[in-house]
Design a protein around this nucleic acid. Sequence first.
DNA 1: ACCCGCATGTAAGTCGTTACATGATTCT
DNA 2: AGAATCATGTAACGACTTACATGCGGGT
Lengths: 210, 210
Amino acid sequence: MSRGAAEDGGSDGRLSVLAYALLGLLAREDLSGYDLAARMKGRIGFFWSARHSQIYPELARLEAVGLVTHTVVLQSDRPDKKVYAVTAAGREALADWLTSPFRPAPNRDELTLRAYSIWLADPARAAALFRHQERRHAEQLAEYEAIETQLVGWFGDELWRPVSPAFATFAALRRGIGHERAYVEWCAWLAERLESADGTSGDAGAAEPS
Amino acid sequence: MSRGAAEDGGSDGRLSVLAYALLGLLAREDLSGYDLAARMKGRIGFFWSARHSQIYPELARLEAVGLVTHTVVLQSDRPDKKVYAVTAAGREALADWLTSPFRPAPNRDELTLRAYSIWLADPARAAALFRHQERRHAEQLAEYEAIETQLVGWFGDELWRPVSPAFATFAALRRGIGHERAYVEWCAWLAERLESADGTSGDAGAAEPS
DNA sequence: ACCCGCATGTAAGTCGTTACATGATTCT
DNA sequence: AGAATCATGTAACGACTTACATGCGGGT
Protein backbone atom coordinates (compact mmCIF):
# COMPACT_ATOMS: atom_id res chain seq x y z
CA MET A 1 0.00 0.00 0.00
CA SER A 2 2.74 2.42 0.83
CA ARG A 3 4.35 2.29 -2.58
CA GLY A 4 1.54 1.59 -5.06
CA ALA A 5 -0.47 4.74 -4.73
CA ALA A 6 2.37 7.15 -5.31
CA GLU A 7 2.79 5.80 -8.81
CA ASP A 8 -0.89 5.49 -9.65
CA GLY A 9 -1.71 8.97 -10.72
CA GLY A 10 1.62 10.56 -11.40
CA SER A 11 2.36 8.85 -14.72
CA ASP A 12 5.81 10.51 -14.86
CA GLY A 13 5.62 14.31 -14.97
CA ARG A 14 6.74 15.83 -11.69
CA LEU A 15 4.44 18.16 -9.84
CA SER A 16 5.06 21.85 -9.42
CA VAL A 17 5.53 23.34 -5.97
CA LEU A 18 2.18 25.02 -6.43
CA ALA A 19 0.60 21.58 -6.72
CA TYR A 20 1.98 20.65 -3.30
CA ALA A 21 0.82 23.95 -1.87
CA LEU A 22 -2.72 23.13 -3.01
CA LEU A 23 -2.50 19.55 -1.74
CA GLY A 24 -1.26 20.89 1.58
CA LEU A 25 -4.30 23.10 1.94
CA LEU A 26 -6.71 20.41 0.78
CA ALA A 27 -5.19 17.92 3.23
CA ARG A 28 -6.59 20.12 5.99
CA GLU A 29 -10.03 20.82 4.55
CA ASP A 30 -12.00 20.51 1.34
CA LEU A 31 -12.01 23.75 -0.56
CA SER A 32 -13.10 25.35 -3.83
CA GLY A 33 -10.68 27.01 -6.21
CA TYR A 34 -11.96 30.34 -4.98
CA ASP A 35 -11.30 29.39 -1.35
CA LEU A 36 -7.81 28.18 -2.23
CA ALA A 37 -7.07 31.50 -3.90
CA ALA A 38 -8.26 33.29 -0.76
CA ARG A 39 -5.96 31.18 1.45
CA MET A 40 -3.06 31.98 -0.83
CA LYS A 41 -3.33 35.68 -0.28
CA GLY A 42 -4.22 35.38 3.38
CA ARG A 43 -2.64 33.12 5.98
CA ILE A 44 -0.21 31.15 3.89
CA GLY A 45 0.43 34.09 1.60
CA PHE A 46 3.63 34.98 3.38
CA PHE A 47 5.41 31.80 2.29
CA TRP A 48 3.49 30.84 -0.83
CA SER A 49 0.99 32.60 -3.07
CA ALA A 50 -0.78 32.19 -6.37
CA ARG A 51 -3.59 33.84 -8.30
CA HIS A 52 -6.79 32.12 -9.27
CA SER A 53 -5.62 32.12 -12.89
CA GLN A 54 -2.85 29.76 -11.88
CA ILE A 55 -4.89 27.73 -9.41
CA TYR A 56 -7.81 26.65 -11.61
CA PRO A 57 -5.69 25.02 -14.33
CA GLU A 58 -3.47 23.39 -11.69
CA LEU A 59 -6.50 21.84 -9.99
CA ALA A 60 -7.58 20.41 -13.35
CA ARG A 61 -4.13 18.86 -13.79
CA LEU A 62 -4.20 17.40 -10.28
CA GLU A 63 -7.57 15.88 -10.96
CA ALA A 64 -6.40 14.46 -14.28
CA VAL A 65 -3.65 12.52 -12.51
CA GLY A 66 -5.96 11.40 -9.71
CA LEU A 67 -4.56 13.37 -6.78
CA VAL A 68 -7.75 15.31 -6.14
CA THR A 69 -11.44 14.95 -6.96
CA HIS A 70 -14.23 17.47 -7.01
CA THR A 71 -17.94 17.53 -6.31
CA VAL A 72 -20.20 20.29 -7.54
CA VAL A 73 -21.99 22.02 -4.70
CA LEU A 74 -25.15 23.77 -5.81
CA GLN A 75 -25.97 27.00 -4.04
CA SER A 76 -29.12 29.03 -4.28
CA ASP A 77 -27.94 32.38 -3.00
CA ARG A 78 -24.54 32.26 -4.70
CA PRO A 79 -22.97 30.74 -7.81
CA ASP A 80 -22.45 26.99 -7.65
CA LYS A 81 -18.95 25.81 -6.85
CA LYS A 82 -16.58 22.87 -7.25
CA VAL A 83 -15.32 21.65 -3.92
CA TYR A 84 -12.06 19.74 -4.17
CA ALA A 85 -10.86 16.93 -1.91
CA VAL A 86 -7.49 15.22 -1.84
CA THR A 87 -7.40 11.49 -2.65
CA ALA A 88 -5.33 8.79 -0.93
CA ALA A 89 -2.80 9.06 -3.76
CA GLY A 90 -2.72 12.81 -3.28
CA ARG A 91 -2.05 12.50 0.42
CA GLU A 92 0.76 10.10 -0.27
CA ALA A 93 2.32 12.26 -2.99
CA LEU A 94 2.29 15.16 -0.53
CA ALA A 95 3.81 13.11 2.31
CA ASP A 96 6.56 11.82 0.00
CA TRP A 97 7.42 15.31 -1.17
CA LEU A 98 7.65 16.74 2.35
CA THR A 99 10.88 14.95 3.25
CA SER A 100 12.27 14.50 -0.27
CA PRO A 101 15.70 15.97 -1.12
CA PHE A 102 15.41 19.71 -1.16
CA ARG A 103 17.11 22.07 -3.60
CA PRO A 104 16.64 25.61 -2.32
CA ALA A 105 15.56 28.07 -4.99
CA PRO A 106 17.71 31.20 -5.39
CA ASN A 107 16.69 34.07 -3.12
CA ARG A 108 15.61 37.32 -4.67
CA ASP A 109 15.14 40.36 -2.48
CA GLU A 110 14.68 43.62 -4.28
CA LEU A 111 15.14 45.76 -1.19
CA THR A 112 18.53 44.22 -0.47
CA LEU A 113 19.43 44.76 -4.11
CA ARG A 114 18.57 48.42 -3.67
CA ALA A 115 20.68 48.53 -0.53
CA TYR A 116 23.61 47.24 -2.56
CA SER A 117 23.50 50.40 -4.70
CA ILE A 118 22.34 52.74 -1.97
CA TRP A 119 25.67 54.60 -2.04
CA LEU A 120 24.40 56.30 -5.21
CA ALA A 121 21.23 57.63 -3.60
CA ASP A 122 20.45 60.66 -1.54
CA PRO A 123 20.84 59.50 2.09
CA ALA A 124 17.72 61.29 3.30
CA ARG A 125 15.50 59.77 0.63
CA ALA A 126 17.08 56.37 1.20
CA ALA A 127 16.52 56.63 4.94
CA ALA A 128 12.84 57.42 4.31
CA LEU A 129 12.53 54.31 2.15
CA PHE A 130 13.97 52.04 4.80
CA ARG A 131 12.00 53.65 7.60
CA HIS A 132 8.89 53.01 5.57
CA GLN A 133 9.80 49.38 5.07
CA GLU A 134 10.66 49.09 8.73
CA ARG A 135 7.13 50.16 9.59
CA ARG A 136 5.58 47.79 7.08
CA HIS A 137 7.46 44.82 8.45
CA ALA A 138 6.85 45.87 12.05
CA GLU A 139 3.13 45.85 11.34
CA GLN A 140 3.36 42.46 9.72
CA LEU A 141 5.31 41.19 12.72
CA ALA A 142 2.70 42.50 15.14
CA GLU A 143 0.00 40.76 13.13
CA TYR A 144 1.82 37.44 13.23
CA GLU A 145 2.44 37.75 16.94
CA ALA A 146 -1.25 38.40 17.51
CA ILE A 147 -2.08 35.24 15.58
CA GLU A 148 0.47 33.36 17.62
CA THR A 149 -1.24 34.44 20.84
CA GLN A 150 -4.60 33.32 19.48
CA LEU A 151 -3.12 30.00 18.41
CA VAL A 152 -1.70 29.35 21.85
CA GLY A 153 -5.09 30.14 23.33
CA TRP A 154 -7.29 28.05 21.02
CA PHE A 155 -5.12 24.98 20.77
CA GLY A 156 -3.13 24.30 23.91
CA ASP A 157 -0.97 21.22 24.11
CA GLU A 158 -1.99 20.33 20.58
CA LEU A 159 0.45 22.96 19.37
CA TRP A 160 3.30 20.77 20.57
CA ARG A 161 2.22 17.54 18.93
CA PRO A 162 3.97 17.23 15.52
CA VAL A 163 1.16 15.11 14.09
CA SER A 164 -1.30 17.94 14.54
CA PRO A 165 -2.06 20.45 11.75
CA ALA A 166 -2.03 23.15 14.42
CA PHE A 167 1.62 22.35 15.11
CA ALA A 168 2.44 22.78 11.41
CA THR A 169 0.58 26.08 11.27
CA PHE A 170 2.49 27.18 14.34
CA ALA A 171 5.81 26.10 12.80
CA ALA A 172 5.18 28.10 9.63
CA LEU A 173 4.07 31.09 11.65
CA ARG A 174 7.27 30.99 13.72
CA ARG A 175 9.21 31.28 10.50
CA GLY A 176 7.21 34.33 9.55
CA ILE A 177 7.88 35.90 12.92
CA GLY A 178 11.61 35.22 12.73
CA HIS A 179 11.73 36.59 9.22
CA GLU A 180 9.93 39.82 10.02
CA ARG A 181 11.86 40.37 13.21
CA ALA A 182 15.19 40.13 11.37
CA TYR A 183 13.88 42.32 8.58
CA VAL A 184 12.68 45.05 10.94
CA GLU A 185 16.01 45.09 12.74
CA TRP A 186 17.92 45.38 9.50
CA CYS A 187 15.76 48.21 8.14
CA ALA A 188 16.07 50.09 11.42
CA TRP A 189 19.84 49.64 11.52
CA LEU A 190 20.27 50.81 7.95
CA ALA A 191 17.89 53.75 8.29
CA GLU A 192 19.72 54.90 11.39
CA ARG A 193 23.06 54.80 9.62
CA LEU A 194 21.64 56.75 6.69
CA GLU A 195 20.04 59.37 8.92
CA SER A 196 23.09 60.03 11.03
CA ALA A 197 25.23 60.41 7.92
CA ASP A 198 22.76 62.78 6.39
CA GLY A 199 23.50 65.30 9.13
CA THR A 200 27.27 64.93 9.35
CA SER A 201 27.86 65.03 5.61
CA GLY A 202 26.90 68.67 5.68
CA ASP A 203 25.07 70.01 2.62
CA ALA A 204 21.37 70.06 1.94
CA GLY A 205 20.75 66.66 0.47
CA ALA A 206 17.57 66.39 2.48
CA ALA A 207 16.03 69.70 1.46
CA GLU A 208 13.08 69.82 -0.94
CA PRO A 209 14.09 70.73 -4.52
CA SER A 210 11.44 73.46 -4.97
CA MET B 1 20.73 67.74 -16.99
CA SER B 2 19.08 66.06 -14.10
CA ARG B 3 15.89 65.40 -15.97
CA GLY B 4 16.94 65.01 -19.60
CA ALA B 5 19.11 61.93 -19.25
CA ALA B 6 16.54 59.79 -17.53
CA GLU B 7 14.24 60.08 -20.51
CA ASP B 8 16.88 59.82 -23.22
CA GLY B 9 17.24 56.10 -23.47
CA GLY B 10 14.19 54.75 -21.78
CA SER B 11 11.66 55.58 -24.53
CA ASP B 12 8.85 54.27 -22.28
CA GLY B 13 9.25 50.58 -21.45
CA ARG B 14 10.14 50.06 -17.81
CA LEU B 15 13.28 48.21 -16.90
CA SER B 16 13.26 44.82 -15.24
CA VAL B 17 14.77 44.38 -11.79
CA LEU B 18 17.51 42.38 -13.46
CA ALA B 19 18.43 45.48 -15.43
CA TYR B 20 18.96 47.39 -12.20
CA ALA B 21 20.96 44.53 -10.75
CA LEU B 22 23.30 44.74 -13.74
CA LEU B 23 23.50 48.53 -13.56
CA GLY B 24 24.28 48.24 -9.86
CA LEU B 25 27.22 45.98 -10.56
CA LEU B 26 28.45 48.08 -13.47
CA ALA B 27 28.22 51.24 -11.36
CA ARG B 28 31.03 49.77 -9.26
CA GLU B 29 33.27 48.46 -12.01
CA ASP B 30 33.28 47.73 -15.73
CA LEU B 31 32.54 44.08 -16.39
CA SER B 32 31.91 41.60 -19.19
CA GLY B 33 28.73 39.54 -19.39
CA TYR B 34 30.73 36.59 -18.18
CA ASP B 35 31.97 38.52 -15.16
CA LEU B 36 28.46 39.71 -14.36
CA ALA B 37 27.21 36.13 -14.44
CA ALA B 38 30.00 35.17 -12.05
CA ARG B 39 29.03 37.97 -9.61
CA MET B 40 25.45 36.80 -9.76
CA LYS B 41 26.23 33.38 -8.46
CA GLY B 42 28.88 34.59 -6.04
CA ARG B 43 28.71 37.58 -3.73
CA ILE B 44 25.42 39.11 -4.67
CA GLY B 45 23.90 35.69 -5.40
CA PHE B 46 22.16 35.61 -2.05
CA PHE B 47 19.84 38.48 -2.87
CA TRP B 48 19.77 38.41 -6.67
CA SER B 49 20.88 35.94 -9.29
CA ALA B 50 20.64 35.31 -13.01
CA ARG B 51 22.15 32.99 -15.59
CA HIS B 52 24.24 34.11 -18.50
CA SER B 53 21.36 33.24 -20.84
CA GLN B 54 19.34 35.98 -19.20
CA ILE B 55 22.21 38.42 -18.81
CA TYR B 56 23.45 38.64 -22.40
CA PRO B 57 20.11 39.63 -23.93
CA GLU B 58 19.47 42.07 -21.08
CA LEU B 59 22.81 43.78 -21.71
CA ALA B 60 21.88 44.16 -25.36
CA ARG B 61 18.59 45.77 -24.35
CA LEU B 62 20.35 48.14 -21.94
CA GLU B 63 22.76 49.15 -24.65
CA ALA B 64 19.93 49.70 -27.12
CA VAL B 65 18.35 52.25 -24.78
CA GLY B 66 21.69 53.91 -24.03
CA LEU B 67 22.16 52.95 -20.39
CA VAL B 68 25.36 51.01 -21.00
CA THR B 69 28.06 50.87 -23.67
CA HIS B 70 30.59 48.22 -24.48
CA THR B 71 34.12 48.08 -25.79
CA VAL B 72 35.64 44.95 -27.23
CA VAL B 73 38.78 43.91 -25.39
CA LEU B 74 41.02 41.70 -27.48
CA GLN B 75 42.88 38.99 -25.63
CA SER B 76 45.58 36.70 -26.96
CA ASP B 77 45.50 33.90 -24.45
CA ARG B 78 41.70 33.87 -24.05
CA PRO B 79 38.63 34.67 -26.13
CA ASP B 80 37.99 38.35 -26.72
CA LYS B 81 35.36 39.93 -24.57
CA LYS B 82 32.90 42.81 -24.44
CA VAL B 83 33.45 44.98 -21.41
CA TYR B 84 30.38 46.97 -20.43
CA ALA B 85 30.33 50.36 -18.75
CA VAL B 86 27.36 52.29 -17.41
CA THR B 87 26.56 55.63 -19.03
CA ALA B 88 25.49 58.84 -17.28
CA ALA B 89 21.89 58.01 -18.21
CA GLY B 90 22.36 54.54 -16.75
CA ARG B 91 23.67 55.90 -13.48
CA GLU B 92 20.72 58.24 -13.24
CA ALA B 93 18.18 55.54 -14.03
CA LEU B 94 19.70 53.45 -11.28
CA ALA B 95 19.74 56.29 -8.75
CA ASP B 96 16.11 57.11 -9.55
CA TRP B 97 15.03 53.52 -9.09
CA LEU B 98 16.76 53.13 -5.73
CA THR B 99 14.36 55.34 -3.82
CA SER B 100 11.32 54.93 -6.07
CA PRO B 101 8.07 53.55 -4.59
CA PHE B 102 8.59 49.94 -3.73
CA ARG B 103 6.02 47.15 -4.19
CA PRO B 104 7.42 44.07 -2.48
CA ALA B 105 7.14 40.89 -4.51
CA PRO B 106 5.37 37.96 -2.84
CA ASN B 107 7.64 35.75 -0.77
CA ARG B 108 7.99 32.11 -1.67
CA ASP B 109 9.76 29.77 0.67
CA GLU B 110 9.46 26.10 -0.15
CA LEU B 111 10.84 24.92 3.18
CA THR B 112 8.20 26.87 5.11
CA LEU B 113 5.59 25.42 2.78
CA ARG B 114 6.84 21.96 3.68
CA ALA B 115 6.68 22.87 7.34
CA TYR B 116 3.03 23.79 6.88
CA SER B 117 2.27 20.18 5.95
CA ILE B 118 4.84 18.57 8.21
CA TRP B 119 2.12 17.03 10.38
CA LEU B 120 1.68 14.42 7.61
CA ALA B 121 5.33 13.36 7.63
CA ASP B 122 7.31 10.93 9.72
CA PRO B 123 8.76 13.09 12.53
CA ALA B 124 12.19 11.45 12.38
CA ARG B 125 12.58 12.01 8.64
CA ALA B 126 11.26 15.55 9.01
CA ALA B 127 13.72 16.26 11.82
CA ALA B 128 16.57 15.05 9.61
CA LEU B 129 15.48 17.42 6.85
CA PHE B 130 15.44 20.43 9.12
CA ARG B 131 18.71 19.49 10.81
CA HIS B 132 20.26 19.32 7.37
CA GLN B 133 18.93 22.74 6.46
CA GLU B 134 20.08 24.09 9.78
CA ARG B 135 23.62 23.00 8.93
CA ARG B 136 23.43 24.46 5.44
CA HIS B 137 22.32 27.83 6.73
CA ALA B 138 24.80 27.76 9.61
CA GLU B 139 27.61 27.29 7.07
CA GLN B 140 26.29 30.13 4.97
CA LEU B 141 26.08 32.32 8.07
CA ALA B 142 29.67 31.51 9.03
CA GLU B 143 30.78 32.43 5.53
CA TYR B 144 29.02 35.79 5.65
CA GLU B 145 30.44 36.54 9.06
CA ALA B 146 33.93 35.78 7.79
CA ILE B 147 33.39 38.22 4.93
CA GLU B 148 32.13 40.78 7.41
CA THR B 149 35.35 40.48 9.40
CA GLN B 150 37.41 40.94 6.25
CA LEU B 151 35.32 43.94 5.25
CA VAL B 152 35.86 45.61 8.60
CA GLY B 153 39.58 44.99 8.26
CA TRP B 154 40.06 46.21 4.68
CA PHE B 155 37.84 49.25 4.79
CA GLY B 156 37.74 50.91 8.16
CA ASP B 157 35.76 54.09 8.60
CA GLU B 158 34.71 53.90 4.97
CA LEU B 159 32.22 51.24 5.98
CA TRP B 160 30.25 53.87 7.84
CA ARG B 161 30.07 56.43 5.06
CA PRO B 162 26.79 55.94 3.14
CA VAL B 163 28.27 57.39 -0.04
CA SER B 164 30.82 54.61 -0.22
CA PRO B 165 30.21 51.38 -2.17
CA ALA B 166 31.79 49.52 0.75
CA PHE B 167 28.99 50.74 2.98
CA ALA B 168 26.40 49.39 0.53
CA THR B 169 28.17 46.04 0.35
CA PHE B 170 28.22 45.97 4.12
CA ALA B 171 24.52 46.84 4.32
CA ALA B 172 23.56 44.02 1.96
CA LEU B 173 25.79 41.62 3.83
CA ARG B 174 24.14 42.53 7.13
CA ARG B 175 20.83 41.54 5.61
CA GLY B 176 22.29 38.17 4.64
CA ILE B 177 23.60 37.65 8.15
CA GLY B 178 20.29 38.54 9.75
CA HIS B 179 18.44 36.29 7.36
CA GLU B 180 20.65 33.26 7.92
CA ARG B 181 20.71 33.75 11.65
CA ALA B 182 16.91 33.74 11.85
CA TYR B 183 16.73 30.77 9.51
CA VAL B 184 19.20 28.71 11.53
CA GLU B 185 17.31 29.41 14.73
CA TRP B 186 14.03 28.40 13.18
CA CYS B 187 15.38 25.16 11.73
CA ALA B 188 16.96 24.26 15.07
CA TRP B 189 13.78 25.02 16.98
CA LEU B 190 11.64 22.96 14.63
CA ALA B 191 14.07 20.04 14.47
CA GLU B 192 14.21 19.93 18.24
CA ARG B 193 10.43 19.81 18.54
CA LEU B 194 10.27 17.03 15.95
CA GLU B 195 13.00 15.02 17.63
CA SER B 196 11.57 15.20 21.13
CA ALA B 197 8.16 14.12 19.84
CA ASP B 198 9.71 11.24 17.96
CA GLY B 199 10.87 9.71 21.24
CA THR B 200 7.70 10.25 23.27
CA SER B 201 5.42 8.99 20.52
CA GLY B 202 6.98 5.57 21.02
CA ASP B 203 7.63 3.41 17.95
CA ALA B 204 10.70 3.13 15.72
CA GLY B 205 10.10 5.87 13.17
CA ALA B 206 13.79 6.73 13.19
CA ALA B 207 15.16 3.29 12.38
CA GLU B 208 16.62 2.51 8.94
CA PRO B 209 14.17 0.73 6.64
CA SER B 210 16.50 -2.15 5.67
C1' DA C 1 43.00 12.92 -26.11
C1' DC C 2 39.92 14.99 -22.89
C1' DC C 3 38.27 18.14 -19.62
C1' DC C 4 38.12 22.73 -17.57
C1' DG C 5 37.85 27.73 -17.70
C1' DC C 6 36.87 31.60 -20.54
C1' DA C 7 33.57 33.72 -23.51
C1' DT C 8 29.12 34.58 -26.01
C1' DG C 9 25.15 33.67 -27.73
C1' DT C 10 20.03 31.21 -29.02
C1' DA C 11 15.91 28.18 -28.23
C1' DA C 12 12.43 25.79 -25.79
C1' DG C 13 9.77 25.41 -22.03
C1' DT C 14 7.88 26.46 -17.23
C1' DC C 15 6.20 29.57 -13.82
C1' DG C 16 3.82 33.53 -12.66
C1' DT C 17 1.33 38.11 -13.35
C1' DT C 18 -1.95 41.01 -15.57
C1' DA C 19 -5.65 41.45 -18.17
C1' DC C 20 -9.80 39.72 -20.53
C1' DA C 21 -14.33 37.51 -20.04
C1' DT C 22 -18.76 36.21 -17.86
C1' DG C 23 -22.47 36.06 -14.64
C1' DA C 24 -25.22 35.66 -10.28
C1' DT C 25 -26.46 37.86 -5.82
C1' DT C 26 -26.28 41.21 -2.09
C1' DC C 27 -25.37 45.64 -0.09
C1' DT C 28 -25.51 50.78 -0.36
C1' DA D 1 -28.02 52.32 -10.30
C1' DG D 2 -23.50 50.94 -9.04
C1' DA D 3 -20.19 48.51 -6.37
C1' DA D 4 -18.65 44.42 -3.89
C1' DT D 5 -18.46 39.48 -3.10
C1' DC D 6 -18.76 34.91 -4.92
C1' DA D 7 -17.36 31.94 -8.58
C1' DT D 8 -14.78 30.02 -12.70
C1' DG D 9 -12.37 30.15 -16.42
C1' DT D 10 -8.85 31.78 -20.77
C1' DA D 11 -5.20 34.64 -23.11
C1' DA D 12 -1.15 37.34 -23.53
C1' DC D 13 3.01 38.49 -21.80
C1' DG D 14 7.21 38.69 -19.00
C1' DA D 15 10.73 36.44 -16.07
C1' DC D 16 13.52 32.62 -15.35
C1' DT D 17 15.59 27.83 -16.14
C1' DT D 18 17.50 24.29 -18.85
C1' DA D 19 19.36 22.84 -22.72
C1' DC D 20 21.53 23.57 -27.20
C1' DA D 21 25.44 25.51 -29.77
C1' DT D 22 30.26 27.06 -30.70
C1' DG D 23 35.15 27.83 -30.14
C1' DC D 24 39.84 28.85 -28.20
C1' DG D 25 43.68 27.84 -24.95
C1' DG D 26 45.79 25.51 -21.13
C1' DG D 27 46.43 21.74 -17.99
C1' DT D 28 46.58 16.39 -16.99
